[in-house]
Each structure stands twice: as C-alpha cells, then as structure tokens.
Amino acid sequence: MMELKHDCIRDLLLGLEENLKLNQTLSVSEIADLSSMTSYNHDDIVYTVNKLSEAGFIKSFSYMGGGLDVSEITYYGHQFLDNVRGNNIWSETKSHLSKVGGAASLSIISELASNIVKAKLGIS
C-alpha cells in the first residue's frame, strides 16, 4: 500500500532545505541517508518525492534505469514548509488533523498550519 505520509513530506522538505545546494541535485539514495529520513524506507521516500514533484513542491527528474534526483524546492514547496516548519506548529497541526483521522490534502494541511501561525501572531 502506498500512502503519502505527512511526516515524511515535512522531513523530506526540511532535509532538502538543509542539504541541497544551488545547482546541485540529491539522489534518492542521498536523501535516504539524511538524518531526517532514516525512519522511512526507500519506497516511502521515492513515493514522497514523486508526489511532491507532481504537486509542484519540488523539481525532480528520473533517469533511465530508475534513478531519481531532486534539484530544488519550488516556491510552493517553501510556502508549505514555512507553514509547517516549527515543531510546535506541526504538532498542533497534526493534533487538529487527528480529528478527521489524519486524512487531509497538502493544501488543507498548509492552510491549517497557516491559520495556526496566524492565530499565534494575532492575525485573523
């Protein structure tokens, strides 16, 4: 079963932000070796990379023979990451998601986290 794991999305984006350099790529194997990704298996990482690429959160490309590299986080990826970056915000977001069984789209998760950030800043 292929499931898009919300923690994997956040951890992957945080790992890319910290380790990906301008004009550089990271392969799935290199991503799997990042400290933020050690709790995920290879299939989870490949699936998450593919889905984040489809969503326009990262740019990735595949090679013949099955290689997969990530070249950058897009503006939309950075927006999402900025909304879920803080551990307290992420915990509160996941707590709210648990009320619906944890199932929500990336856009809902981002909006929910954004609303939590706004509330903490006193912005309505």
Rank of each mutant, 00 (worst) to 15 (best):
M2N: 13
E3C: 07
L4Q: 05
L4W: 06
H6R: 12
C8L: 12
C8D: 01
C8E: 02
C8Y: 01
I9T: 07
R10V: 05
R10C: 00
D11V: 01
D11L: 09
L13M: 15
L14W: 01
L14K: 15
G15D: 02
L16K: 07
L16Y: 04
E17H: 14
E17D: 12
E18T: 12
L20C: 08
L20Q: 09
K21T: 08
N23K: 15
N23R: 15
T25I: 06
L26E: 05
S27F: 06
S27P: 04
V28Y: 07
E30T: 02
A32Q: 14
L34Y: 07
S35L: 11
S35A: 12
S36T: 15
M37V: 07
M37N: 08
T38C: 02
N41D: 15
H42C: 00
D43K: 07
D44H: 11
D44K: 08
I45S: 01
Y47K: 09
Y47G: 05
T48R: 05
V49L: 09
V49S: 08
N50G: 11
N50H: 14
L52K: 10
S53C: 14
S53M: 08
E54R: 15
A55N: 10
G56D: 07
I58P: 10
S60I: 03
S60M: 09
F61I: 02
M64L: 11
M64F: 08
G66A: 04
G66W: 02
G67W: 01
G67R: 01
L68H: 09
L68G: 02
D69Y: 13
V70M: 11
V70E: 09
V70Y: 12
S71G: 11
S71Y: 02
S71L: 08
E72W: 01
E72S: 14
E72A: 13
T74V: 06
T74Q: 08
Y75H: 10
Y75A: 07
Y75V: 10
G77E: 04
H78S: 03
D82N: 13
N83T: 03
N87S: 12
N87R: 12
N88Q: 06
N88R: 04
I89T: 14
W90I: 03
S91T: 06
S91V: 00
T93K: 00
K94W: 02
S95D: 14
S95I: 00
H96D: 01
L97S: 03
L97F: 03
S98A: 11
S98D: 13
S98M: 04
K99R: 13
V100L: 09
V100N: 06
G101Q: 10
G101H: 08
A103P: 00
A103M: 10
A103Y: 13
A104K: 13
L106K: 12
S107I: 14
I108Y: 15
S110W: 05
E111Y: 11
L112N: 06
K118I: 00
A119E: 15
K120G: 10
L121F: 03
L121K: 15
I123D: 07
I123L: 15
